[in-house]
Design a protein around this nucleic acid. Structure first.
Lengths: 241, 241
DNA sequence: TATTCGACTTGACCTACATCAAGAAAAGTG
DNA sequence: CACTTTTCTTGATGTAGGTCAAGTCGAATA
């Protein structure tokens, strides 16, 4: 029996559980397990039976698919407060469709799926929260899918930065560049070249994992209209002065 | 007030509504509208306010995204019995994220979203049906997304045929080849070449929209292992005899 | 049966991006 | 602070698949 008071707190902080009364929450908490992951450690692998889903409390976790040849495609970066694997609740013989690996030391709470499903039956409100979450996730995924076949790499990078920076003129890459690249379905080398190109055109400037947007209109233009890069990706374009 | 008895029947045949009692179902049916679409006619466009979702009764409808330059990416083919647009129920300011266009004369039932959401609050079972539907759709979409960056066109075609044919050794393309191509994120020209290549290798044979699988093991091999085509796509490989 | 129109195919060519192979920078580590 | 390891960058080159243009085929229409 899990009497760890902090589990309750962590659950309560999460939208998905916020509609449940204390008694219900405690029952769920009883069947949870806290898992600590070191950087690079795997939480589960593609194909593993999925008897529980997770709430991230600390660190970062990447969800990624893998081809037989070992190539990876990062599908999602989990940050604290997010849940993952809940969608599997509703499949009959659920197995994780992706790998989960910690990008930095992480801590997650594993919630028993069957247990939670039973609770769900008692709370329509929670059903609605979950429905909302899954809907948004579905739309975002569909958008990524169409973006991938409709837009070039440069364009997807521009759109990503534009969204990531929202109203600010600066943003930090919270994960290694190669991971960002994979999320955008771009090879690290190509991603590097795209960044350089955008820099050379005075649209952004990059220092380490820190990106400054110097020409937002141009970035937005690229993000929307873009089909071919404005100045195609060139090797060593020197600043003519 | 919609007293059309056939609407009730059509709703009842659909999983999403099958758990509702007659009274509830009739209340929903009262607020539905039957829409008949000619081939090529649009049901809604990307960006339209989404006040209702739909149940397809007849025909085929393609859901597709469009780039500023007019390029299309087909995301889903709707067939009779399927619902679409329900996920928008749970967004605050819902707009259709895709275009919907009839591929052949079609008939759909439009269900008022707010109306249905209210009903949903009364039926946890229906929530679960919906959760199941959205989960599966999410997983399929995620798989397509990773397949797109991990596998070649040939491989995606092989996988598509393998799945479409399940246990049979034959399958019919239910939509124009260019639409299948777009679903697989392949240009019509390339799709044509891939089909020819698979034919030349004796893996399938194609006559019109009819595909026969002549070498299933080879097809499955391609579908799983494939990163480069086994015999790369060649122009006019003649049968050497 | 001729004719039109769209869907499909084929060829020639091109390009965005991947791959391979070194370096250069960071980031850890002893 | 040297030393290793990993990440990132850069260049040279290759290729899957896109683009453009010209057929060909087939179904629908006249």
């Amino acid at each position: 029996m899990n009497t760890d008071i902090s589990v309750l707190d962590d659950l309560r902080d999460c939208m998905l559980f916020s509609n449940l009364d204390d008694a219900t929450l405690e029952r769920i908490a009883d069947n949870t397990m806290r898992v600590t992951l070191q950087e690079g450690e795997n939480l589960f692998a593609q194909g593993d039976p999925a008897v529980r889903f997770f709430l991230a409390c600390r660190g970062q976790i990447k969800l990624f698919s893998q081809s037989p040849t070992g190539d990876e495609k990062v599908l999602r970066i989990i940050t604290p407060g997010q849940t993952f694997g809940e969608a599997l609740l509703f499949l009959n013989k659920p197995r994780y469709p992706v790998n989960a690996q910690a990008l930095k030391p992480a801590e997650v709470i594993g919630v028993d799926s069957a247990d939670f499903a039973a609770m769900l039956h008692q709370s329509v409100d929670t059903c609605f929260v979950l429905l909302g979450t899954l809907s948004q996730r579905l739309h975002r995924t569909l958008r990524e899918l169409s973006d991938l076949s409709l837009y070039t790499g440069t364009c997807r990078v521009a759109a990503h930065f534009a969204q990531e920076a929202r109203n600010r003129d600066t943003l930090d890459l919270e994960v290694p560049k190669q991971v960002v690249a994979s999320r955008l379905s771009i090879r690290p080398e190509t991603f590097s070249r795209i960044l350089k190109n955008l820099s050379n055109n005075g649209i952004i400037s990059v220092r380490g994992n820190h990106v400054t947007i110097s020409d937002r209109p141009a970035l937005l233009e690229l993000a929307s209209v873009c089909n071919s890069s404005p100045a195609p990706i060139q090797p060593h374009q020197t600043d003519p002065r």
